[in-house]
Structure formats: C-alpha cells, structure tokens
C-alpha cells in the first residue's frame, strides 16, 4: 500500500516536525540518509562516464542522469542535515522480525532457483506450503498441505495450461 491509512498521516503533509527525535528513528534515518548519499554519488560517477551528445543542441545521454544524481545528492544531504539536527523524520516503531522476513524472502528465492530442476509450478506449491509455516495458527501442517496443493494447482492448471504460460 502506498498510503498509510490513518487520518493523522493524511493531514500531516508537512516535513517532519522539529523536536527531540526518538533514538531509534535517529539511527534508522541516519543510515538511510547515508545510503541515499552513497547511491546518488555512485550514480553520479557512473553518469559522468556517459558520452556527450553529437547533434547540435543535444545535451547527450548523460545530461539528465547527471542532473538527477546532483539533485538526489543535494536532497540526500538536506535529509542528512535534518537528521543530524534531530528532526524526527519517522521510521519503524516496532521490532523488525528479520528471521521471518528474510525466511520468506529466502524461501521464494529458493523457489526460483529450484524452478529449473523440478518446474516452477511444483516449486511454487512446495514454497507456498512451507511459507505458511512462518505464520502462527491452528493445524499448521494441514494448512501448509492445503495451501501448497492449492497453489500448485493454480500455477499448473490455470497459468501453465489455461493461460499457456511457458513455466520453466
């Protein structure tokens, strides 16, 4: 979801308010600002390597990327300054469940890697079934088996056969 469904966020269109930033947000935004600067500087260096334009008046293929990179670097620098000044620019409040999030991600990467050996439909079925075990709930094994079989059927019959998608 692009928007966060709360009245408060809808009405708060201004930049972050001043004041003492929560400690956690400070470090999150500091890292994010540094990553933004790194990305834009890297992009600028790559853009500078692009050739100049040949036609009269044409600014060349590197012109817009350079301008975007400079703009991005300036904006990221402003972001960093705001963070260092203690402006709370928001961030996550709760604990990030790295194990579950990376587990789900790794599972679907494994699904893609395994697709070349046993087929995407079967891989997706197995992956979907196993992925449900990452969630709490009653009768997890029954739920996993039912979900896995259901998604294998959807992938193989609907997408593979009905829509003729050339699944690996």
């Amino acid at each position: 979801m692009s928007g966060h469904a709360s009245g408060a966020s809808v009405h708060d269109l201004s930049a972050g308010r001043g004041g003492e930033a929560p400690h956690r947000h400070y470090w999150q935004n500091l890292v994010a600002a540094l990553v933004c600067i790194g990305w834009n500087v890297g992009f600028l260096l790559l853009s500078l390597g692009l050739p100049a334009g040949h036609s009269r008046g044409d600014v060349g293929p590197g012109s817009l990327p350079i301008q975007v990179a400079v703009f991005g670097t300036v904006v990221s620098a402003v972001y960093l300054v705001q963070v260092l000044r203690g402006v709370d620019l928001g961030g996550t409040h709760g604990r990030v469940d790295i194990a579950r999030v990376s587990g789900l991600m790794a599972l679907f990467v494994a699904v893609c890697l395994g697709a070349n050996w046993i087929g995407l439909a079967l891989c997706l079925g197995i992956g979907a079934g196993v992925a449900t075990l990452l969630f709490p709930g009653e009768k997890p094994l029954v739920r996993a088996a039912a979900t896995g079989a259901g998604f294998w059927a959807i992938a193989y019959l609907v997408f593979g056969k009905l829509l003729a998608l050339p699944l690996p």
Binding site: D12, L13, S14, W39, L64, G72
Partner: peptide
C-alpha cells in the same frame, strides 16, 4: 510533495525513480 510524510523523503524517492528510468 503530497504523497504524505516528509518532503525531503518524497523528493529523494522521485530522484531514485528518475535514476531507474534512465
């Protein structure tokens, strides 16, 4: 500017999207 939250973050995201578009 209007996508909610911080303006500076919105602009950083626009720059990121434009970079990807190139």
């Amino acid at each position: 500017a209007l996508s909610g939250g911080s303006l500076v973050k919105g602009l950083a995201c626009a720059a990121f999207g434009l970079a990807l578009a190139t």
